[in-house]
């Protein structure tokens, strides 16, 4: 080993914690998609199994590339190989991601552009996270009128896991940071609330929310969350059946 400092598994896992299944907006580690992590010097090899052999190749591709890029953020790591297992397109996806080919080049009859798919799912994830953040603000005593008027600089996130929210000239509340930080992560990824004076929350279409439509927008956020967690249950049922039948013959 040329380096004295070895990268440990925890550092790799921490990076992978931040990679989500784009359709469910949940971490791939929490969803138990990771089979093995092997570290050898500056190289990491990660193997994955998804709930079904026919999960969307586009989603598989996104997760594999995101996992690779997340691990490469560790300075000591120079090389990452992904290994998707038991998937109908495992060979194409592994080769494509590891050789850094484009999705279109590997799947020439792919329907739609992979970045457009990602944007759409990111937007839904943002709406669902907005629901949780806004719910936390309502629970903290903020009114709909105050919430729709918030801009990025009204938030002050401290290092203790608390966020101070300036509701108007004289009034501030303090709430847990977790839903706010999770929201901001996806908001930033979708180009919302970027800049200190930018509105914090928007409609699913990305527009400013008027106080009269607050309730509808909030319920649409709830709907986005219900959809994602519902699909999560469908995937989990399919995954359980797959494990159960893994030893069954033909």
């Amino acid at each position: 080993m040329s380096r004295t400092q070895r990268v440990d598994r925890t550092a790799v896992r921490t990076r992978l914690d931040r990679v989500t299944d784009p359709e469910l907006d949940r971490s791939i580690t929490e969803l138990e998609y990771i089979d093995e992590i092997e570290i050898e010097g500056e190289s990491v090899a990660v193997s994955f199994t998804l709930p079904t052999a026919w999960c969307s190749p586009a989603f598989a591709w996104m997760m594999m590339t995101d996992a690779r890029d997340a691990i490469l953020e560790i300075p000591e790591i120079t090389d990452v190989a992904v290994d998707l297992r038991d998937h109908m397109h495992a060979a194409e996806i592994n080769e494509g991601v590891n050789e850094r080919l484009s999705f279109d080049a590997v799947f020439d009859d792919a329907d739609g552009d992979i970045e457009a798919v990602r944007e759409e799912l990111d937007e839904k994830a943002r709406a669902a996270r907005q629901y949780r953040a806004v719910s936390a603000l309502l629970d903290g005593g903020a009114t709909p009128e105050q919430i729709v008027g918030l801009v990025r600089k009204d938030l002050t996130i401290d290092s203790e896991g608390r966020t101070t929210v300036r509701l108007d000239e004289t009034l501030s509340i303090c709430i847990e940071s977790e839903p706010i930080e999770r929201y901001l992560e996806k908001a930033t990824a979708t180009g919302v609330a970027n800049g200190t004076d930018a509105g914090l929350f928007v409609t699913p279409e990305g527009e400013t929310i008027s106080p009269s439509e607050f309730e509808t927008v909030h319920r649409r956020g709830r709907l986005a969350a219900t959809n994602m967690s519902g699909q999560g249950h469908v995937c989990a049922n399919l995954a359980e059946a797959r494990i159960g039948s893994a030893s069954a013959s033909d």
Partner: peptide, 28 residues
């Protein structure tokens, strides 16, 4: 519409002639 329950409900909320069939949701 699953896995697009959200898109489906939003369309159905605006179009009175849109209905929802529970197949696949029901086993949950």
């Amino acid at each position: 519409g699953m896995p697009r329950l959200d898109d489906f409900c939003w369309i159905a909320a605006q179009e009175p002639n849109v209905y929802g069939g529970l197949a696949v949701a029901a086993p949950l």
